[in-house]
């Protein structure tokens, strides 16, 4: 089957590894990701903080392009892009005037027909159907991930259908368990890492991350797993700084969910760019004899 695909800017830059992994994992599950043509930046949180019109209009252009593909569903792996796109679609569905104003500027008009999905929405049913197990060649034994969802997968600034439990989502746990991993129960799975605050309000962001990391360590996790490139980057790239400042003992690799699925499927770790993490992500896999 084919799904429309919106990678977003991160997956074309510092989180390119996530783009590579998504294509590999989805491909193996028989899903071809069709990147939508000439997509633009969704505006992320910056648009919402500076300009209400652009916050809706930028994702709207992508929605118009996605509608024109004729495909029924678009998958957006980045939590921020997913959130902004879903919010834009919802807002336009109840504001015909704004929709007309935006459509007037667009070649591909927004219809609002396409279903906007996050990555777990597409992957989770493949666990229930048995497709995931069928493709998995290895059991991820010994892996104890702290499944880290962050903010934008389950919390929205307006009423949209939330696809998992808001306060205690389970999508990643379901996938991890089906692959033989043993995810820890912990309290900070939906807490904020600070996102861009790591750049513009660093002390605040480090404090937020220290709470997340302290709990993951206390619960006995040996790695993190996430779906959001911003969460992944922050918890990975700033982990050493947080650890030194707040006295953490361990350094835990921060995997994308696609990395764990890919390893279970038997893909080559370097081919999936698992060696591009800030906190070494290859060592644990070797230690557990998963690669």
């Amino acid at each position: 089957m084919q799904l429309a695909y919106y990678p977003g800017c991160s997956l074309h830059a510092s989180s390119e590894l996530y783009d590579v992994q998504c294509k590999m994992v989805f491909g193996n599950l028989g899903i071809e990701l069709k990147e939508i043509a000439d997509w633009n930046c969704c505006g992320a949180t910056a648009a919402a903080k500076t300009d209400d019109f652009l916050a809706i209009a930028l994702p709207a252009r992508n929605l118009g392009i996605a509608d024109a593909t004729g495909l029924s569903e678009i998958v957006i792996p980045c939590s921020s892009c997913y959130s902004r796109t879903l919010v834009s679609q919802q807002r336009l569905s109840c504001d015909p005037e704004l929709k007309a104003a935006i459509n007037a500027e667009l070649g591909s008009k927004v219809e609002g027909a396409i279903k906007v999905s996050n990555i777990l929405e597409v992957l989770k049913p493949r666990v229930a159907s048995g497709e995931m197990a069928e493709k998995a060649k290895k059991k991820l034994e010994g892996l104890k991930p702290a499944c880290y969802y962050g903010c934008l997968l389950t919390r929205f600034p307006c009423d949209v259908t939330v696809t998992d439990d808001v306060e205690n989502p389970q999508g990643m746990e379901i996938i991890c368990r089906s692959l033989g991993a043993d995810p820890v129960d912990w309290s900070y799975k939906t807490d904020c890492c600070g996102a861009s605050a790591s750049v513009n309000d660093a002390e605040q962001s480090l404090l937020l991350m220290s709470r997340i990391m302290k709990d993951a360590e206390a619960r006995g996790a040996n790695c993190y797993v996430t779906t959001c490139p911003l969460c992944q980057f922050n918890v990975d790239a700033y982990q050493e700084q947080v650890a030194q400042k707040y006295g953490l003992e361990k350094r835990l690799p921060v995997y994308f969910i696609t990395e764990l699925i890919g390893i279970a499927m038997g893909f080559d770790a370097v081919g999936m760019q698992v060696d591009r993490h800030f906190v070494d992500a290859m060592g644990l896999l070797k230690e557990l004899k998963l690669i």
Partner: peptide
Amino acid sequence: WKCVACYTCGT
């Protein structure tokens, strides 16, 4: 200024 737009309050 420091609000990180995590949407916890609204949720």
